[in-house]
């Protein structure tokens, strides 16, 4: 059952990823991105990372995609009437991406096999780790979020002069 779910989630995720890249209208790209991230959350559940699956859905579907759609609709973009891939550029891009995939896959294949080890009480254990060993990065992240917020406000303010 879990194996079938893995194949379903990963193939659906990759297909919607392809549609993100190839979609002509940015709105459809954004919606396929949500779909792709949902399937990714499904894979997280299969890996017993329940907390991260919920965070993934909340942060990406709840915040990031809303932001994307808001900006797309704010900018009122025309859909691209011609598919704008230049033949040389597209060939080069696919070549580089394919080479990277092939190289990384050969590294993965050369790895020694590993067995799944049980991870106990993920959410509770993660909270403990986050507030003991990773306390400093956690606090630094909050400062980073504050900086990002100030930056966004100052960037998107209309100049009054």
């Amino acid at each position: 059952m879990q194996d079938q779910l893995f194949w379903f989630f990963s193939i659906a995720m990759l297909l919607s990823g392809v549609l993100v890249v190839l979609g002509r209208n940015p709105v459809t790209s954004a919606l396929f991105l949500v779909l792709s991230l949902f399937f990714m959350a499904g894979l997280f559940v299969l890996l017993e990372a329940y907390f991260l699956a919920i965070i993934q859905i909340l942060v990406y579907a709840g915040a990031v995609i809303v932001l994307f759609l808001f900006v797309i609709m704010l900018l009122d973009l025309k859909t691209e009437n011609v598919r704008q891939f230049k033949r040389f550029g597209a060939g080069g891009a696919l070549l580089v991406a394919g080479a990277l995939a092939w190289k990384l896959a050969s590294v993965v294949m050369a790895m020694p096999a590993a067995d799944a080890k049980p991870v106990v009480g993920t959410t509770e254990a993660m909270g403990k780790l986050l507030f003991t060993q990773y306390l400093l990065p956690f606090e630094v992240t909050s400062v980073l979020l504050l900086i990002a917020m100030v930056g966004v406000v100052s960037l998107s303010r209309k100049e009054t002069k």
Binding site: F6, V18, V21, L94, A97, V108, A113
Partner: peptide
């Protein structure tokens, strides 16, 4: 583990292709 990593590799390359295309 390999299956998950291969899916991750494919996803990463797809994103890279998108950035360049």
């Amino acid at each position: 583990l390999e299956h998950y990593l291969i899916v991750s590799v494919l996803m990463f390359s797809l994103g890279l292709a998108g950035v360049m295309l």
